[in-house]
Design a protein around this nucleic acid. Structure first.
Lengths: 338, 338
DNA sequence: TAGTAGATTTGAATCGTTTCATAGGTAAGC
DNA sequence: GCTTACCTATGAAACGATTCAAATCTACTA
């Protein structure tokens, strides 16, 4: 589009390209008459700055790349919101890439943002991307990990203690008298899933009578939850768990829906149910859903904050690792048996 | 980041920059030995292509800009999903911009994508952006409007007939015996809202006894719905509507939640409730929510499709306007009074 | 051995903006 | 009238990848 360049504007206004650039970038240093003529030339030609050229010269863009696992999950859209707000305060713009938990798509977005020389990268990675991220970081791509922590590396990160969250959830179930507990979630290659599972196991380990069954899902969606729920409700009653910890609220809502449709399982009387993330829709569910709350918008905001510090700090920056604590939210789906 | 350029790679590999570029862009026309040396130079230097330079030369990027009103609304995240899938098939990448219904943010994203010379723009606009979009379109920015239709312009668009949808919803309420109907939604400057409202009025007009009250909201969110619901539940029973049409499901879920918390209003016995969009969470709600379904992913996919045709068609392309028909989904929240 | 077609490789020109050293202009001061 | 200072405007040199006409190399034929 728009083959109108600075040169054309300059020609029409009868000034040099340098002056046009000045009008655009440092209006203070330009006489009123030039500024006026240039402005009207811009308007009449419909000039639109070419960001590629600008960036090529500048070496860096004013965009932040944000790569998330699933933008359909309110946890991530809230997180994105928080990041956008903070970025906007700094005159930066957030560009969103949704990977749908697909390593190939993740790679595409990470490479794209790297090639675009974004201001910085916020990424909620799948495990496979870490090597690439390390490489890019070494080459100078400022990166903040979201919901992923590493030991050996010098990445800044913002996480919620998923192990603690998993513990909170299952401990709550146990305290309510449940013993045959099922963990619904997957794939375990997703860090959030495996950490929450670890937390669940920790809680189980403290209570000799309690057992933990694993019911795998292919992804963290309502649909997968529904399918898991169907499988469970088709079992004979004695073979069902008496409580379920779902790796996130989408799964939990799907499970709940399947139970409801089947008519065979009542929550919380037959099976108690707790999710994770405390998305808005948890409280509006048919049986309001207990969950583990994460400060999603705050996480996004903080990630941008760390990114800003990292960029400002230049070579000598020290990575920061912020860990938020999750919070148990008890609602009807795990209320004491009536 | 990464001050490693093609030139550096070429130097290390002992070939010309042209050859390095060839290795990257037309591997067929390059000897094995060169290819090999270049590859290992790239690896050892950690070369990352500079997209700005590449684009400056190419004149256009392989990204599609998608600007949506609210990425937290599952309607839009599903739509984005559909768009991404289709784009991926063409080797294009979708970059998402979330405006939060804010005209200033919308302007920022539109201008940013224009300056980036994206492959094309998909935008679900607020009314104020249309002039800008017309300008940019004239300069050659391929644009497809999503959920927004215009008369005089030559924009391609993908919409759902919101007037028909509003009619469906309110007609359904009337057929179920309701007469004092309230429309919860706003701001009316959002086209979807005003169209759905128009449809609602059309239905009312056909039934002499029926009335339509307007309850305004500031935006289309669960929170705003909750507040509207609180206002309604605080009225004395005789002053309440007997049915509510909410401009989207988020509002409807908020209203439902407020009613439930107040304990004073039961859905559907005291007040029937219908939403719009049929998001996943409509069917998982405490009272499963009747709604008007839109084929959101299909809309996104089609929008990319039209964009591709538009770009392929070049100057002589004829704009296409695809209009999907909405579909009534009846659930418990509007079931016949018991 | 010279000649030729075909396959590779080269390097300079190009994209559009920003920057910055330099040139040009104007006004005040002596 | 001449100098000095200051303010604006200029235009050429980057930035880094791609392209393409021209140069070089290879292998084969006569």
């Amino acid at each position: 589009m728009s083959s109108v360049s600075l040169r054309d504007v300059a020609a029409l206004a009868g000034v040099s390209v340098g002056s046009v650039s000045n009008v655009l970038n440092r209006p203070g240093s330009v006489s009123a008459s030039v500024s006026e003529r240039v402005q009207s030339a811009i308007d009449s030609l419909g000039y639109v700055r070419n960001d590629a050229a600008r960036q090529l010269r500048a070496g860096q863009s004013r965009c932040i790349g944000l790569v998330v696992l699933d933008i359909g999950n309110p946890f991530f859209s809230d997180l994105a919101r928080g990041a956008e707000r903070r970025a906007t305060e700094e005159g930066l713009t957030v560009l969103l890439g949704d990977t749908e938990e697909d390593p190939a798509r993740e790679r595409v977005y990470i490479d794209l943002f790297a090639e675009q020389r974004v201001f910085g990268l916020l990424v909620s990675p799948l495990g496979g991307a870490m090597n690439r991220l390390r490489d890019l970081k070494k080459r100078g791509l400022s990166t903040v990990l979201v919901d992923w922590q590493t030991e050996g590396d010098r990445f800044s990160s913002v996480t919620v203690d998923n192990v603690a969250g998993g513990y909170l959830a299952v401990n709550h179930l146990i305290e309510n008298g449940h013993r045959r507990i099922a963990f619904v979630g997957g794939p375990h290659s997703i860090r959030q899933v495996s950490d929450r599972f670890t937390g669940a196991r920790n809680a189980i380990a403290q209570h000799p009578g309690a057992t933990l069954e694993v019911i795998d899902t292919e992804s963290l969606t309502v649909l997968q939850g529904r399918q898991a729920g169907e499988r469970i409700s088709q079992r004979k009653a004695s073979a069902r768990p008496d409580a379920i910890f779902a790796a996130n609220d989408l799964l939990a809502l799907g499970v709940l829906q399947a139970f409801n449709l089947s008519g065979r399982v009542s929550v919380p009387n037959d099976i108690a149910l707790i999710g994770y993330d405390d998305i808005d829709f948890a409280s509006t569910a048919m049986v309001s859903l207990s969950s583990v709350r994460q400060p999603s918008a705050e996480i996004g905001r903080t990630a941008v904050e760390l990114l800003l510090r990292q960029v400002a700090g230049g070579a000598g920056f020290e990575p920061e690792r912020i860990v938020f604590q999750p919070e148990l939210v008890v609602r009807d789906s795990t209320s004491a048996l009536r």
